[in-house]
Design a protein around this nucleic acid. Structure first.
Lengths: 319, 319
DNA sequence: CTGAAAGCGCTTACAG
DNA sequence: CTGAAAGCGCTTACAG
């Protein structure tokens, strides 16, 4: 039997007789044969390796570890998912250069939480590599992405808070250009407008998340017309909001409801535990891997894929 | 100029004249030339790729995200460190088979927090790949590893607690066969014996960390001769211990001191914040990468490398 | 110090 | 449906 036949049998090329293929597969299994990655890559021009770029962490040391359970779940699932498609997953450092990327021989990349016109997405494009982002890059129209339906989640959270008795719901947003933050704000604004509710929007910085959220909460609760519910967007704000409420003499959920737009350790282990929507980073990773593989094999249009978020109702909203 | 010369110049082989080398380097820079990874790998037999295996996560969904900031810091630093050595870092799924590993064309692997005679370490060895573990595999004598000096850390923590007034220090251990747990216990026992202090050891399970730690704490504090300090080993126990103390009517640090053997979100953001020792996962990752590269290039004996932990003194011990 | 040849192990493109 | 040849882009081993 010629080498070609073995190669084609193992790679599922149609030209091989089924019985030949079965025989080859059996022997390969017995011998534990695996095609040499480099030989295959050299000849075929693809690597079967995907790159994963996680968001750049803030400079503040104390801050960097704060929202990481989301990314850890995502990265782990991306590795498992890539392997199930016979691909490997390369973890890229947050700061990569163009020549780094060239030398890596990747087939494509996944960029998580891109900023506005994220330069790391540009890098992939310049090198001619397909790229998929998790969450939309607000500065780009044509990039393939996986995301949650932020508008629907926002509505669901607002309705839950209202159902639990909230009249004046404040929104606490991060000061970043992430798409989901902008979309949440838009959905919030149209919701309060439609219902004739007051619009109360506060901002906190991601870098000193807890402190900044604490200060924002303190300010919110000191107002004459202070809110009776806070919709917190970022995981790292939750502790600050809880402390702010406590120091302002508010009990949760007694005199203040709190809900979060993304689930996290902070929400689950809050004091009290905070109602939050699970964005399922595992599924986002799976979808991103599949979408990227489609793009690598020349697959068509960049239809975004959406992952459905599910609520975890907890004590902070009286559940 | 022959192709060989370019190759040798770029790879720092001694045979090339310095001026030739400089010329080659300059042109390569201008052209953004990077040697093809596959061609290089095929001929030279090495991949310049390292594998990273993080601990298998528990099955319980709520549990898996609990101690992840440590691993996230570690993984990020491993990627950066690998890249600084012109290596790439492959994130491996927790369950890899032998043939997976063969097909990956890795040069070596790092296994984090190996269990007793960890099968994933065995896998690397069977495939003939160098491996370094972060923390020692208690079931192996000869494996290269990076670790903290657990005995010294234990002593430092016990002394700090004593200095802050503790007389009866309990130790709360996980029920796992990790080396650091066993070493902490040994150091604790010799310390209490030397000083004639009572030996109070409790165990909690990693799977339902918070609940299990809560129950253990409740039991500890219900004893007639209940401890006035608890030394908590695992990050995920901290919340349970804090709740247990609160429900037992103990104020921290007023009537109970708490210190943790590893820093984490739980410690930093505890209520009150908990004194903890930072094991510097970033440095552990750097050391592991360097150690692995040494082993790959045939470097000598498997002398373990130690990373120095540093204390973060916080309110839970009256700081 | 530099070069010409061989070859790593596959897959592709061309024949039959 | 199967095969013989060429070649992917480097590095190694051998010459000079």
């Amino acid at each position: 039997m010629a080498i070609v036949t073995v190669s084609d049998a193992l790679n599922g090329k149609g030209r091989v007789d089924p019985s030949t293929r079965a025989r080859v597969a059996e022997v390969a299994r017995q011998l534990g044969y695996q095609a040499n990655r480099h030989a295959r890559g050299l000849r075929s021009g693809h690597s079967r390796a995907l790159g994963l770029v996680l968001p750049v962490r803030g400079d503040a040391r104390s801050d960097e570890a704060l929202s990481l359970d989301f990314y850890m779940r995502l990265a782990g699932a991306a590795a498992v998912s890539a392997f199930s498609h016979q691909q490997s997953l390369m973890l890229l450092p947050p700061k990569i250069g163009r020549s780094d990327l060239r030398g890596l021989a990747l087939d494509g990349g996944i960029v998580v939480d891109p900023r506005h016109a994220d330069p790391r997405v540009t890098l992939f494009e310049e090198v001619g590599l397909p790229v998929v982002t998790i969450e939309r890059d607000p500065g780009r129209a044509d990039t393939a992405y996986v995301a949650c339906r932020t508008g629907e989640i926002t509505q669901a959270i607002l309705e839950h808070l209202e159902q639990q008795g909230a009249q004046r719901i404040a929104l606490l947003l991060p000061r970043v250009e992430w798409a989901w933050a902008a979309e949440t704000l838009a959905a919030y604004e149209s919701w309060v407008t439609e219902r004739g509710r007051p619009r109360v929007v506060a901002r906190a910085s991601m870098l000193h998340g807890e402190r900044s959220a604490y200060e924002a909460t303190t300010r919110l609760l000191a107002r004459r017309d202070s809110p009776d519910a806070i919709f917190v967007l970022a995981a790292r704000f939750i502790r600050g909001v809880l402390r702010g409420a406590e120091d302002a003499g508010r009990t949760v959920p007694g005199s203040l409801l709190i809900a979060a737009g993304v689930d996290s350790v902070h929400a689950r282990e809050g004091h009290p535990p905070v109602t939050a929507w699970d964005l399922h980073p595992e599924r986002q990773a799976e979808e991103a891997v599949e979408m990227l593989l489609e793009r690598i094999s020349g697959g068509g249009a960049a239809q975004p894929r959406f992952v459905v978020a599910t609520p975890h109702l907890r004590a902070s909203t009286g559940c």
